[in-house]
Amino acid sequence: MPRAQNKWSGEVTKHSDALDLEPHIFESDDPREIADSLKRSAEHSSRRKGSAYQSAMSMLTFYINRAGKNLDAKHRKTLEAAKEELRKDFGRETKH
Results as ranks from 00 to 15, higher is better:
54 Q>H: 13
37 S>W: 01
58 S>T: 08
32 R>W: 09
93 E>K: 15
56 A>G: 05
5 Q>A: 13
46 S>P: 00
82 A>H: 03
59 M>H: 13
8 W>Y: 11
43 E>I: 09
89 D>P: 00
94 T>S: 14
26 F>A: 08
5 Q>F: 10
8 W>V: 04
29 D>S: 04
15 H>E: 09
13 T>V: 13
75 H>N: 13
2 P>W: 02
24 H>C: 09
61 T>A: 13
47 R>C: 07
83 K>C: 09
59 M>E: 09
74 K>I: 09
31 P>S: 06
8 W>H: 11
14 K>G: 05
40 R>I: 07
40 R>W: 07
8 W>S: 01
27 E>C: 03
83 K>E: 04
64 I>K: 11
33 E>R: 01
64 I>N: 07
34 I>R: 07
46 S>V: 06
23 P>M: 13
25 I>C: 15
52 A>R: 02
10 G>W: 13
81 A>S: 10
19 L>Q: 08
49 K>G: 01
70 N>G: 06
33 E>W: 00
74 K>S: 14
54 Q>F: 13
42 A>Y: 00
71 L>C: 02
21 L>E: 10
56 A>P: 05
6 N>T: 12
62 F>G: 01
74 K>W: 12
62 F>C: 00
74 K>A: 15
10 G>C: 08
43 E>C: 03
14 K>N: 11
57 M>T: 11
13 T>I: 13
21 L>H: 13
86 L>G: 12
90 F>T: 12
89 D>A: 15
65 N>T: 10
76 R>A: 15
31 P>L: 03
83 K>R: 15
82 A>G: 03
27 E>S: 11
28 S>F: 02
51 S>R: 03
80 E>N: 11
87 R>H: 08
43 E>D: 15
83 K>Y: 07
